[in-house]
Simulated scan of single mutants.
Amino acid sequence: MGVVVPWPALVLRAVAAVSALADLALPMSCASCGAADERLCPPCLADMRACLWADGPRPVAPNPAPTGLPVTFSAGRYDGALSRTVSAYKDDGRRDCRPVLGEILAVSLQAALGQPPLAHHLRDGGPVLVVPVPTSRAARRRRGDAPLEALARAACAGFTTAEVRPVAVLRPRRRVEDQAGLSAARRAVNLEHSMQVRGRSEMLVAGAACILVDDVLTTGATLVEAARALRSGGAREVMAATICATQRRARASAARP
């Protein structure tokens, strides 16, 4: 990646990028609290920074961790202004928050790239495939787009094409229930064998090193299924990166970056 920016300053830089957007049709209210004339008001920006771990992204896992969960790096806790901004981006059409959230996801991505399996792959010539978890057909119809795919591209913008390649190689293979409100066990059953590698992407995935990206780590069921699909498609290494992790279910792993 290019110049390394101090971790807390990344959010400020991202907010500056949002403020520089030329499209005046974008909403001008705080994505977190709704305050007028600010896409992220100063109190919510401060709260968002407080949700990010001061020492940077760390490996996280639910407790108990589901079998098959890839090593996952996250930048902070799903709480306060950070959780509200993630939800606003994904479900309320606040696509103007993409630069902010993309910067945060990029640092989680960088932490994953520094781990031995992927670092070795980069030294051997790379690039690492950055794979967003697929959006269900129902969610794509409801939202009108696939916000996680756009977020993955934004997170990769600061890397070279020799380092990462954002590719939407996974697709849903059957309908699933809405995950909201489901227990960890029901989420796992709901998602089991629900994803597959797109036919046209099979050669790209075979033998590849991949980083799955998602917005939030909750029970881990989505990442487990996405990782299974990539491994079934022949991926050699699979890790994951998220913006944040739920604290009521997730704990920091014993290993630290």
Rank of each mutant, 00 (worst) to 15 (best):
V71E: 13
L45D: 02
A35S: 09
V131G: 06
A227D: 07
R84W: 07
R231V: 13
P64T: 14
L40V: 09
S253Y: 00
A188D: 07
Q179S: 12
S136Q: 05
P172H: 10
F159N: 03
W53K: 12
C33W: 01
A36N: 05
H121A: 15
K90T: 04
L109P: 08
V213Y: 09
R142F: 12
A250G: 13
I211M: 11
G199Q: 14
C156Y: 00
R49K: 11
R249T: 11
T161N: 12
N63H: 15
P8T: 06
P27L: 12
P66E: 05
S194W: 02
A152P: 13
D79E: 11
L82P: 11
A235C: 13
R123W: 12
Q196N: 00
C244T: 02
R84Y: 05
A22L: 01
R95F: 07
N190I: 08
R58D: 00
R248C: 06
P59N: 08
L40N: 00
A240Q: 08
M48F: 11
P64M: 10
V205Y: 04
A208G: 09
C97M: 14
T72E: 12
T67E: 10
P257K: 00
A65G: 05
R95L: 05
L129I: 09
S136C: 06
G207W: 13
A36P: 10
R123C: 08
S136I: 06
S253R: 08
A61W: 11
P8L: 11
D145T: 10
N190L: 05
D215T: 06
G68P: 04
G80L: 04
A14M: 07
A46W: 00
R187C: 10
P59D: 02
R143V: 13
E225N: 15
D145M: 07
A31C: 10
R165H: 09
G234D: 05
A184D: 11
V164W: 08
V133F: 02
P59R: 05
A221D: 06
R249V: 12
G102L: 09
R13S: 15
S32Y: 01
R228W: 03
A54D: 15
I104N: 01
L21T: 03
L204R: 03
C33V: 00
R231N: 13
A16I: 00
R141I: 12
A139D: 13
P134I: 04
V71N: 02
R200I: 13
W7F: 13
L170Y: 11
C97L: 14
A240L: 07
A157F: 00
V15W: 05
L45I: 04
V86M: 04
V238Y: 15
D124V: 05
T160I: 02
M28G: 13
R171F: 08
A250D: 07
G68E: 03
G56D: 04
R174E: 07
P43D: 01
R236K: 10
P62G: 14
A9G: 11
V18M: 03
P27I: 04
A180K: 11
